[in-house]
Amino acid sequence: MLRADYILKLLEKNERIDGRKLDEFRKIEIERNIIEKAEGSARVRIGKTDVIAGIKMEIETPFPDTPNEGVLKTHAEFAPIAHPDFLPGPPSEDATELARVVDRGIRESNSIELEKLCILEGQKVWGVFIDIHIINHDGNLIDASSLAALLALMNTKIPKYENDKIVRGEYVAKLPISHYPINVTVSKIMNKYLVDLNREEEDVVDAWLSIAVREDNYLCSMQKGGKGLNIKDVDEMIDLAIKKSKELRKLL
């Protein structure tokens, strides 16, 4: 409670507890191809938040309405190692939301060329499984996870498929990627707009808007959380998200 008051008091002066500007991300560190067993992987650290995205490619049956397209599935796990509040068990509401927001950014921007992942129409297609593993939670999981997922997809290779079997460790091509959505979550606290909240700041957030911005500045998904926003908020939050997405895109 005292800590929350302190955060708000500083914010009145446009200051943050870790000395950042309101629209400043923490230091972002990226590692690619860190899991040899996975077809693609990446680790993203934003400050003390630490997220690994791993991609596994499996043979799947296509959806009936898209018989010649590969399938994309995203799962997120708040592993109990990452935070005292994370408990073992089925994915929580927040973990489910995280997975679905990451999934929508990738899916709705048509990032992966799923139509190139058909093996046998109506019967066999490649399934792209994005698994988000939170290693340490210090806020802004959506942006960290989305970035890790995109980076992992960008280094994903399609395994060799021979005599109805996947030959692990041998690859025939890179996963075809044509769009690069960057997710930026803009938060509102005391009528100020901030990016990249840390865990303590998230405790005092009024509302947030998570926006996936494509390289052509099209917005491809939005998700609002917390309390209400007015139209001016939405306007300014979108502007800030577009601006920050340009910065983050340089990391790809």
């Binding site: 929508r104 899916r107 709705e108 921007s109 808007l209 494509r214 500045n217 099209y218 917005l219 491809c220 998904s221 939005m222 998700q223 609002k224 309390k227 209400g228 926003l229 007015n230 139209i231 908020d233 939405v234 306007d235 979108i238 502007d239 577009i242």
Partner: peptide
Amino acid sequence: AFTANKKEITLLQMDGELTKEEIK
């Protein structure tokens, strides 16, 4: 979703491709 009188947006989601102007 929004509050009828104060016009406070309480639910906002989007999937697909829209420009900022289209959203407004």
